[in-house]
Write a protein that binds this DNA or RNA. Sequence first.
DNA 1: CTAGGGTTAG
Length: 545
Amino acid sequence: MQLPAPIRAPTFLSRRRLFEQKLADLHKCTDLNQLKQLHALIYKSNLHKDPFIAPKLISALSLCQQMTLAINVFDQIQNPNAFLCNTLIKAYIRNSEPDKAFEVFREMRWSGIFPDNYTYLFLIKACSGLQSVKMIHAHVEKYNLYSDLFVPNSLIDAYSKCGLMGVKAAKVVFDVMEERDVVTYNSMISGLVKAGELTQAKKLFDGMPHRDRVSWNAILDGYVKAGEMSAAFQIFEKMPSRDVVSWSTVISGYAKTGDIEMAKGLAKEAARLYDRMEEARLKPDDATFVSILSASAESGLLGLGKKVHQSILRRHGAYLVQWKEKMVTWNAMIHGLAMHGHGRKALQLFDRMKQEGFAPDKVTFVGVLAACSQCNDGIHHFYSMENDYGIAPEIEHYGCLIDLLGRGGRLSEAFRLLHNMPFEPNVVIWSSLLRACRMHNAVQLAEEVLHQLVKLEPAGPGNFSMLSNIYAAAGDWGSVSNARLQIRNIDSKRPSGVSLIELNDEFHEFTVMIQLTLNQTEIYQTIKGLNQHLTKIPYAPSIAI
DNA sequence: CTAGGGTTAG
């Protein structure tokens, strides 16, 4: 009779080998529990001062958001070198503490450690705004760090994210470079595209020595952003090869076009392209999904949206798991709740997000402030955004706050903020104020707002109908007919507002002067049902004229 | 270690 082989306990040697293997990949460790074990073992083996282990340990700890422990490791090294300092800088950036990253930089210069090209590379990432990029740029000039192309390339990219002024500065760096590679050109092209300088971008694209797929995708995006879909499609067909980025760009471009006349054709084109992408066995990724879904949601392309949804489900939910961990998911959920009147739930989710260790970003705050239109914490969150999280408010945030004040009837405060904010008010802000004027019967203010709106959007019939409603609420019937006349003037020049939704491969249009072509009875029955439902719940309909 | 497509206010 044969006995089964005894199970051997792991020998000291194999355990040691396992430990060494784990140490090799230590800097990639994202599992906190595993890291804690390794952390203990490293200290026990007195390896925490090892010049190869210490930076890896700092990296891993920063990945697991354990900055206190990471600093602890750093502080125990008597003579840190540039490599170790770079690791700490990178760690701070990863944990969204750019100020601390700059502090490390100051300290290392103070203690006579020479920063290297990597130091500057990481610091460029920590920059927010033109001033800080300029500061690094000055160092790059002073120490002539142009020989490592990564440095000026990153500078171009960082400048490109600072608006129009930034793109100009990026161009200066670009022009001064004696040697350029494909990344240099691509960064500059994408910067120009972001600034809306399509002509210049195209010129650079045409003149560059070698174009890769990134170059083609960047210029493709330029045409899509400019709304020039036929030119974009020509580029899409002409480019030597296409990847998920090319497909995502062109599909969402087709899907989100605002031109109703062309919408139907383009929507079909978008759906057709989506099928073609799947036929080409290209795997759409999370960015593909996000961009196409948002474009189809904006334009009411239910079919395309469903297609994307099906692709996601077909992946066994793998993407859902991935998304669970992502900022966009929290942001989208908070915003979704806010949009649908669940302001309190949105704020509760915001708290949970923070508890789970996510640092809110500027998009999160758009959702949070939108949620506050139903409560009074908006101003508190607005200040907290800059003071506690170091996020400079953008026009969207001011827009939310103005909307919030307007809804609350604090119209004069809303106006004061509008005039004092560092941005030119846009259509969204003026129309949100117009709506606030309607809510609070502020006739005179409404006239002023309309005046501004007409300047920005001369052919917007919705504005005059809002004004007409305001006059009606005030009983000024003479002005009502006047406003109606204006609407008719605009209407004769331009097709009136159309709401479009696609169902089962068919497009349904709804206009102000409703002309139903399909299933009239079914639609009217639904409306009748809705009205009946409304009589049963406490609801006071507002009467539009 | 740098470059391309993404979430957002009416």
